[in-house]
């Protein structure tokens, strides 16, 4: 276990070193991360004449600031990596190592999270500080549950995207699946509108699907909109989905390896 931990630390350290080489790319993420701010502007203009449902202007500011942060801290692109590595043969290199390739991919993502965490955590706290009308509930308990829910959101997004990426073993255009997934994530995860404002039956459907747990759930915690029982049931649901996705990953990986053509040199 200790050895395994060391492997992660070393791999993550290399990931950070590699990503720091791409300063330009980092600047671009920050720009591309502004979608929640666009949505915020839209909802603020609607909320100017009075609250929308249970959301006042201050709620929207809190919601989209948190949405920005959650999406940054759960950003995943592993499907594209897998797609490239499977089709170009770069997966071969990882397969030769005596550690399951998923850990090398995860460590690279964790490295990114360390960098984004350092960049965006103070930024988000600073912005929340500067806007007095913002509606959030940063109690110690909420911060605690928020961190767990955030890690859970990352895990679900990561596993889901990894699984979708594995379909490249069977279809050369597996990435179209990601587009569908992304659309559902934005709509049913709370990217376009807070889930509470969705019309029925979408709202109920969203409640039972894992997309909520990937974005909206940690935000709801931090806005003080959930009681402890609701928080615990959300965390339990995250765990159940996580186990299910891990099972699916194991199955698809084993099948995919049989199928793998080890293309490229």
């Amino acid at each position: 276990m200790r050895k395994f931990f060391i492997k992660y630390v070393v791999l993550t350290r290399r990931g950070i070193a590699a990503q720091l080489e791409y300063r330009m790319a980092m600047a671009i993420w920050i720009l591309s991360a502004s979608f929640p701010l666009v949505m915020l502007a839209v909802w603020l203009s609607l909320a100017a004449e009075g609250p929308v449902g249970s959301f006042s202007a201050g709620d929207f500011v809190g919601y989209y600031l948190l949405s920005f942060y959650v999406r940054q801290m759960t950003a995943v692109w592993v499907a594209w990596e897998l797609d490239y590595d499977i089709r170009h043969g770069d997966l071969n290199i990882k397969l030769l190592h005596p550690i399951a390739p998923i850990h090398e991919y995860i460590s690279f993502n964790l490295a990114d999270k360390v960098i984004r965490g350092i960049l965006f955590t103070p930024l988000v706290i600073g912005v929340a500080w500067l806007i007095p009308t913002i509606q959030i509930a940063p109690t110690a308990a909420n911060l605690f549950f928020f961190s767990i829910a955030l890690a859970g959101a990352w895990m679900l997004r990561y596993l889901a995207q990894f699984i979708l990426g594995l379909f490249t073993f069977w279809f050369s255009q597996a990435l179209v699946l990601i587009d569908i997934f992304w659309m559902l994530y934005l709509l049913l995860g709370g990217g376009i509108a807070p889930l509470e404002l969705l019309p029925e039956p979408l709202k109920t459907i969203a409640f039972y699907l894992p997309f909520r747990l990937m974005m909206s759930f940690p935000i709801e915690i931090m806005m003080g909109r959930l009681d402890t029982a609701e928080i615990l049931s959300g965390l339990a649901a995250t765990m159940v989905w996580g186990i299910a996705l891990m099972g699916a990953y194991r199955l698809l990986w084993a099948r995919g390896m049989r199928r793998f053509g080890a293309f490229g040199a």
């Binding site: 050895k3 060391i6 070393v10 290399r14 190592h97 005596p98």
Partner: peptide
């Protein structure tokens, strides 16, 4: 260094 860790 990464290989050192991976290969123990």
């Amino acid at each position: 260094l990464v290989n050192q860790a991976i290969y123990e």
